[in-house]
Every structure is written in structure tokens, then in C-alpha cells.
């Protein structure tokens, strides 16, 4: 049984079909990259995996360790170990980062033995490794955060929640060169047989830092290419047009 499997997934928002039969299988501990042009449905796929109420799944299935996620509310999916690092994390004004993190960690992992003090100590250590200052703890969640700060906070959450399956939706966008290295380092430390990863990005530079085992391209709601990681160079050079020309029929290489 694969750790994570998407079978012929179809989803729409309102009347507009977006995912039109996505198939994707990831074995436990593997890292897969997902690329594709703007608007091809990458974030939609992430949201559907997490159970966003605005998207209606009209066909297919999403299996995590053999169990369908589709009937489960979002929070149940998170408690099973599914995590999404958002492309655009939203702000929740007035809710301190510290309080949010504690509520989330307790919801997913249960109350920590060390109490509030022990919890904060752990958080501070993780923040240090991501080179975040402690001042963030008292700030409103994502309130007035810069793009890069938001992305760091997403990875901080991932490190605290220790998911089994994580989808990173353009975590590299908005990060400066140093931050990219720090954040990628933060992700790589978690890699291993306990973490299955789907990394969505537009750029080769992230995949140099977080090296995937496989690469997929999503176009117009379908996976049109699946291959080895080396294909990223060809994509960088040629763009997506050559794949578009072969539209209709999925290309499988490597």
C-alpha cells in the first residue's frame, strides 16, 4: 500500500471544473515535486487534499495509508498527520502566534508533558533553528508579517506538528536567498522514512536544496508529465509549451 495516493481526482469550484482526473502515488518517505503553469490547479489540489469547503470533489479519491480522506473534516485530516504549508497564509488578527501554536500542537499531538513552559522552550528552540526572533510569539498570527516571515512560520508549524504527509505550496516564493537556504534546511532535517513530501514550486533552485525523488507537471487539471528529478532542467530551459503541445496524452518518461 502506498503512503499517499490520489486516484482520478476531479474537483470544481462553483461550476468551474479545475482538477480533471489527477493521478499521483507517493511511497512512504519519498519526496515528489509538483510543477506547472500558473492557474493549472496546484493550489487547488493542495486545498482539496486538506478538505477546503469551497471545493467540491466530483470524482476520484484521496487515500492516506489506504484510508480515504474525502469524508473527513479538515481538522481530522490534520490530526491524521496531513499538513499543508500554505501559498498564502491568512492573518488572524489578535490571536498571538504563541497561543495559536499551543492550540494547534495540543489539537494534533495532545497536551505536552512539560506544560506551558516546556512547550514554549521547545518552540523557542525550533525558532532559533529557523532564525526567527522570539518577538514573533507575541504578535498576531501572520498579522503584518512579510511574505518571507509567513513562510518561515509555516515551516515552524510543520516542525512542531511533525506531520507524516506534508504538502509545501510554493514555500520558496517570497523568501530571500538566505531564508530559502534556512527554510530548506528546516525541511530537510525532517526528511526520512517518517515524512512523505509533496513540494510545489516554480523554480529549480528549491529543488536543488530539497532534492525530490520524482517530478510531476500539472497542466489544466491533469498530470501531464511524471519523471525523474533531472527533468527540471529541461523544464527550466524549455518552459511548459512543449508539454502543452502534447496535450491530451500524458507523457511518462524516465
Amino acid at each position: 500500500m502506498a503512503e499517499f495516493e490520489i486516484r482520478d481526482l476531479q474537483a470544481r469550484i462553483g461550476e468551474k471544473p479545475i482538477l480533471q482526473g489527477v493521478n499521483l502515488t507517493i511511497e512512504r518517505g519519498e519526496t515528489h515535486a509538483l510543477m506547472g503553469p500558473n492557474g493549472s490547479g496546484k493550489s487547488t489540489l493542495s486545498n482539496v487534499i486538506m478538505g477546503h469547503p469551497d471545493y467540491e470533489v466530483t470524482g476520484g479519491d484521496i487515500l492516506f495509508r489506504g484510508q480515504s480522506l474525502l469524508g473527513l473534516p479538515t481538522e481530522e485530516r490534520a490530526r491524521l498527520g496531513v499538513f499543508l504549508a500554505f501559498q498564502y497564509p491568512v492573518a488572524v488578527p489578535g490571536v498571538s502566534v504563541a497561543r495559536f501554536l499551543k492550540t494547534a500542537v495540543e489539537a494534533v499531538r495532545g497536551k505536552s508533558a512539560g506544560g506551558a513552559g516546556g512547550f514554549l522552550k521547545g518552540v523557542r528552540e525550533q525558532m532559533k533553528s529557523l532564525e526567527m526572533t522570539e518577538a514573533f510569539l507575541d504578535r498576531g498570527l501572520n498579522e503584518g508579517f512579510s511574505g518571507g516571515e509567513k513562510k518561515r512560520l509555516e515551516i515552524l508549524q510543520m516542525r512542531l506538528l511533525k506531520p507524516a504527509l506534508a504538502v509545501l505550496d510554493e514555500t520558496d516564493s517570497g523568501l530571500d536567498i538566505d531564508a530559502l537556504r534556512i527554510v530548506a534546511g528546516g525541511v530537510n532535517q525532517l526528511r526520512g522514512s517518517d515524512l512523505t513530501l509533496l513540494v510545489i514550486t516554480h523554480y529549480e533552485r528549491l529543488l536543488k536544496l530539497i532534492q525530490p525523488d520524482h517530478l510531476h507537471v500539472l497542466m489544466e487539471g491533469r498530470i501531464v508529465f511524471s519523471g525523474g528529478p533531472e527533468a527540471v532542467q529541461e523544464l527550466e530551459r524549455r518552459g511548459y509549451d512543449w508539454l502543452r503541445e502534447q496535450a491530451g496524452e500524458a507523457v511518462v518518461a524516465g
Partner: peptide, 12 residues
Amino acid sequence: QLFYLRSRGIDE
């Protein structure tokens, strides 16, 4: 906002 918080395991 609700979706974001729920995606972190927090019930509605």
C-alpha cells in the same frame, strides 16, 4: 481563517 486554523487540527 477558519480553514487555516482547522488545517492545524483545531476544531471549528
